[in-house]
Design a protein around this nucleic acid. Structure first.
Lengths: 187, 187
DNA sequence: TTGATATGAATGAACG
DNA sequence: CGTTCATTCATATCAA
């Protein structure tokens, strides 16, 4: 997720615009801390309590709400997983005939230099939803292999987190020391 | 259409890396195929597998990645919808309104209020927020973020109401010690 | 050159 | 949690 040079005009703190600004955007410090938690610490499943704590702490660096923290983690987890899923998925030998309509093989002649070095992450998605239209035209010979089991990426979901199942007053203290040196690759 | 060519703002310390990003641009054949799928076939919701397959086939006509296909469909769908919505908003009557900077001219209709303030579950999804019966406000004082840890850079975090507050923090040493009690320490 | 437009890309928010 | 929507940022291209 290396953004190019996207520098959002975040309100240095509480410079909320005339209220027309509805979408939260993490300030660099906030982002740094969040990423530190997620990556450096592997903190991916914060409990509601922790979310609030994090949020409270992040309020020093700008307006933020619990739900922002919550969504942030949700999105990051989802997109990380999507990325993995994509790489693991190998194109089936299926033949999706894209040369419908015009069979003319018009040479494009446009050569784009090889830009290796894939950089950005993204979120490929897609879903088989009902088409709004009336037409249910199947796509050529799209096989859509019945193969499942893409759960190869272990779901180490610590479902029982969040203090559900702590025997007695067992309290865990995890201490996290993350040293982030500025220049976080905002992403 | 609401992008006002907003350019970079003065960075308070964030250096802007040189942008050598060459974003993908569909070659004519690629575009033809994509449009054919979208319009002619009404194929608007490709699955990740289909995205990969489409991408694979499009590689014959130029460099392309899965994410490009993904974004292409996403953007097209979003913009079709956007245009449609705008069209409905356009005053047909003879109202000479030069108000281009319409910030939420019409009711967004999005008023899903998530009650995140309360710890009682994040109704938005139902993932990790298994909350147990005993919620106590005490958790708000959990030493998740020791204050001392911020001393290093706490000075510049002013984020005063002056606008851009956060300065370019170089590094931090954040020590997070969160103590998760068995939820109800009384148990 | 400057401003506007089209569109690739990123991500916050929400749905099922 | 996976998927989809909506908004925004950034840049290439084009018109004047």
């Amino acid at each position: 997720m290396e953004q190019q040079t996207q520098q959002q005009i975040e309100d240095g703190g509480n410079n909320q615009a005339a209220g027309t600004n509805n979408r939260w955007a993490p300030t660099p410090p906030q982002l740094r801390i969040l990423k530190g938690l997620y990556y450096d610490k592997g903190f991916k499943y914060p409990t509601p309590e922790q979310i609030q704590e994090i949020c409270l702490h992040l309020k020093q660096y700008g307006q933020i709400e619990d739900k922002n923290v919550f969504f942030w983690f949700q999105n990051l987890k989802a997109r990380e997983r999507q990325k993995l899923k994509e790489f693991q998925n190998v194109p089936v030998g299926g033949s999706l005939d894209l040369n419908f309509g015009s069979t003319s093989s018009t040479d494009d002649g446009r050569s784009i230099d090889l830009n290796f070095g894939s950089r950005v992450g993204y979120g490929v998605d897609g879903s088989i939803m009902e088409q709004r239209g009336e037409y249910h035209q199947e796509i050529e010979t799209l096989p859509l292999f019945p193969m499942h089991g893409e759960d190869i990426f272990g779901n180490m979901k610590t479902t029982s987190e969040g203090g559900s199942g702590y025997g007695g007053d067992s309290r865990i203290s995890l201490e996290l020391s993350l040293n982030s040196y500025g220049n976080a690759d905002i992403a």
